[in-house]
Nucleic acid binder design. Structure first.
Length: 741
DNA sequence: CGGTAGAATATTTTT
DNA sequence: TATTCTACCG
């Protein structure tokens, strides 16, 4: 256990060792930011600061976990894991659960995700009999979210004459009532949405001096990563808790601020110096990640932004190749050809799939790339998009689990009271809701009381209701059992899986498999030594979407949105869909503030690369079910031409006939690692050549042997006996597996 | 109440 | 296009 800063440059070293007072570290891309943060915290611990007095807020929980491990390694201090480290949301959820009674919640409050919130708002709009076009639920939710992130709660909204006047002009004068009702609904459900986790924390500290003082004295050293992406509430909370010791260290890069749609405000970073009297500022300007060409290209792009902190990012690595700009006829060709280039590099040039990442502006762009990679049997992994816990069937099961923890959660109750169908329809649900509302209580409280008799429904329906209550009561008794026992019992009592199996469509088979996966993960969760209760489980999955099993040995191409690529690096970066209207997005083009953010987004994308950046655009693209034409993004032309070379891909037909393929030079000769383009294996059919008793390896279930193949209906179904997971029916169209014998 | 067919809607990005 | 929502009939 000794200090070893020898590998840090002098500016990094200063940033690590200057521990007292407010500090601002401006860290350009690839400047060793993560190292500086971990070393800084490790340094504090080595200075005998108790780890439980350190608060470190990161952008994702995954990053927090990785950092904790590294700090633990450096310091060899067993207590290193008691640092308060995590996202704003997860840390404050922890505090709120502890102090919930003061805020009028129980410690078991549910956390609603955006889908839940929108559904509630949609119901309110319907109940108010409002025009669905004037009051679009998603728009209303976005506005509520924006208000919360700017410290305007529903009470304040109602007395803010400017806002009310504005709504009146826009003919949305009911907004304030929807906002109020939504907050009430959440409160009776004993639930908070994502924004509440921040807003209520701020309120808690504001209204309770003693509690604020307690946390001020606990958090002697505060460190916040990615400060450029904090919003007003987050900034305000930091000001609250940092006031006592003022040991607040913020780290970030204004040029990488890409979350303004979530209320993030670069000014939090720019104003930091004005709030504290003596801010010590460090600039990490040397990029150790990328080639000089990449850094220069990125610099020339970001120079077009006006609103930024001046700094000079430079690289002393080798010059490297120019950025390649590839032009395709349409999105299919783009996906196909890029897959082809990557596939060839992997097969012929012995590159690893994990050296490649494909980045895009919108999730929907992943599809063509997926097709291309799958066709060539290249391993890939799509990050984000529909996360596992957002799938319908998983959310259904989770709703039961949430209800066990928090019976008052109306949203979850409405979701599952008739799923699987048990004769309780919309009319009945509406009546329960009305009765409950009158009594100012949750729907479960109504059902679980003599009041159930007052609900005006037919006798048959009433029996269905009491059956449901009986079943739920059985489940509620299990609350302290281990999570695996709970889920097993739940599946038996509710018949969820059985019902799905009765109607074995492709989709339902997939659902059963997904629920199976959930059961598996709960089994693993139950085997933990501590923090393995149902509440722990729900808490973890509500806030930590990245439940990636850290099996890093897997070799795959990474596909993700640029937003998700923040903080990551790859040797080869492909950025697809560089077309005006898509990137920059249509909505951003008129407003310079938004356009600058899109430019920063492109900047982030380029600076993920270590060796080479390849950018592509297509003339025609399939969007909203029709083909749209678009032009090369003007962002490309903003890069100094010295650092790019443009190529165009010629093919006369989409069937990609061998003879029609050639690369046409626009400026400099193509130096692509793969010059000889081959014909593509034809066929989009999902029937794969498989044999009984063949061994396969599945990305989730592991190794198994094919027992049955069913090629009817053009959808190939195979029954596989897995070594560890038993027999499963898979659709080869969806399943991700490899043949190993 | 349940199921289905046809309509409506969405494509910016996420804790 | 893909998914989710709504209306209507059995």
């Amino acid at each position: 256990m000794h200090n070893n800063f020898s590998q840090l440059n002098s500016e990094q070293k200063k940033a690590v060792t200057h521990t007292e007072g407010p500090v601002m570290i401006i860290a350009g891309p690839g400047s060793g930011k993560t190292r500086v943060i971990t070393e800084r915290i490790a340094h504090l611990i080595q200075l005998e600061i108790p780890p439980q007095n350190i608060l470190a807020l990161t952008f994702t929980n995954k990053a927090a976990k990785a950092m904790k491990n590294r700090i633990h390694k450096i310091t060899e201090n067993a207590n290193a894991f008691s640092i308060w480290m995590g996202t704003f949301h997860s840390i404050f959820a922890k505090i709120l659960r502890k102090e919930s009674h003061i805020m009028g919640y129980t410690p078991y409050f549910t956390i609603y995700d955006n889908e839940d919130s929108v559904k509630i708002i949609r119901r309110i709009i319907k109940e108010f009999n409002l025009d669905k076009d004037m009051y679009n639920a998603k728009y209303v939710f976005a506005r509520i979210s924006f208000m919360k992130n700017n410290l305007v709660d529903s009470k304040q909204y109602n007395i803010d004459q400017d806002l009310i006047k504005q709504d009146l002009i826009n003919k949305r004068e009911e907004f304030k009532n929807i906002y109020t009702k939504y907050c009430n609904e959440c409160h009776t459900s004993n639930a908070m949405d994502f924004d509440d986790l921040l807003l209520k924390t701020h309120e808690l500290f504001k209204q309770n001096k003693n509690i604020l003082e307690y946390y001020q004295s606990i958090f002697k050293y505060i460190l916040i990563d990615e400060y450029q992406d904090t919003n007003k509430v987050q900034d305000a909370i930091i000001k609250q808790i940092g006031r006592k010791y003022q040991n607040v260290c913020i780290v970030g890069d204004d040029s990488q601020s890409i979350y303004s749609f979530r209320g993030a405000n670069i000014n939090n970073m720019l104003n930091f110096k004005m709030f504290y009297k003596s801010v010590k500022e460090f600039k990490l300007e040397q990029n150790y990640r990328s080639t000089q060409n990449i850094v220069n290209a990125a610099n020339s792009l970001i120079a077009h932004n006006k609103n930024k902190i001046e700094k000079t990012i430079f690289s002393e690595n080798e010059n490297g190749n120019k950025i390649k700009i590839l032009k395709y006829a349409n999105d299919r060709e783009e996906g196909d050809q890029i897959s082809d280039i990557i596939a060839k590099n992997i097969v012929k040039n012995k590159k690893k799939a994990s050296e490649y990442a494909i980045l895009y502006r919108t999730n929907s762009q992943s599809k063509v790339l997926e097709d291309g990679l799958r066709k060539r049997e290249i391993n890939y992994k799509i990050f984000g998009g529909l996360s596992f816990y957002q799938r319908k069937e998983i959310k259904d099961v989770m709703a039961y689990l949430k209800l066990i923890i928090n019976n008052n959660d109306n949203e979850s109750l409405i979701r599952i009271i008739n799923y699987p169908t048990r004769g309780i329809g919309p009319t009945t649900i509406e009546r329960i809701r009305k009765t409950s509302e009158k009594k100012n209580q949750s729907m479960w409280q109504t059902l679980n009381s003599p009041l159930i008799e007052e609900i005006n429904v037919q006798k048959k329906t009433k029996n269905h209701l009491t059956d449901f209550v009986q079943m739920m009561k059985k489940l509620l008794q299990l609350i302290d059992n281990n999570v695996f026992e709970i889920i097993e019992e739940l599946i038996i009592l509710t018949n969820i899986i059985q019902k799905l199996k009765e109607d074995p469509t492709d989709e339902n088979i997939n659902r059963v498999n997904n629920i199976g996966e959930l059961v598996n993960s709960m089994k693993m969760f139950a085997e933990r030594k501590k923090n393995n209760t149902l509440l722990d489980f729900i808490n973890e999955v509500s806030l930590d979407e990245s439940k990636d099993d850290e099996k890093t040995s897997q070799d795959y191409v990474s596909l993700m949105t640029i937003h998700q690529s923040k903080g990551l690096e790859f040797p080869y970066i492909y950025i697809v869909g560089l077309e005006t209207g898509l990137f920059p997005s249509q909505k951003s083009i008129q407003e310079s503030r938004l356009l600058e953010e899109e430019r920063r987004l492109f900047y982030v994308a380029i600076t993920r690369a270590i060796n080479q950046v390849i950018v592509s655009h297509a003339k025609n693209r399939f969007r909203f079910g029709t083909i749209t034409q678009s032009e090369k993004s003007f962002f490309i032309d903003e890069i100094n031409p010295l650092f790019i070379e443009e190529l165009t891909y010629k093919s006369k037909s989409i069937s990609l006939n061998k003879k029609n393929q050639e690369w046409k030079k626009i400026k400099t000769p193509p130096k692509l690692e793969n010059r000889n383009l081959r014909k593509i294996t034809k066929g989009i059919s999902h029937i794969i050549d498989l044999n009984i008793n063949q061994k396969i390896i599945h990305n989730i279930f592991g190794e198994g042997i094919i027992k049955k193949i069913d090629n009817s209906n053009g959808n190939q179904k195979i029954t596989v006996l897995f070594v560890k997971n038993g027999e499963k029916v898979l659709l080869t169209k969806f399943a991700k597996f490899k043949i190993i014998s």
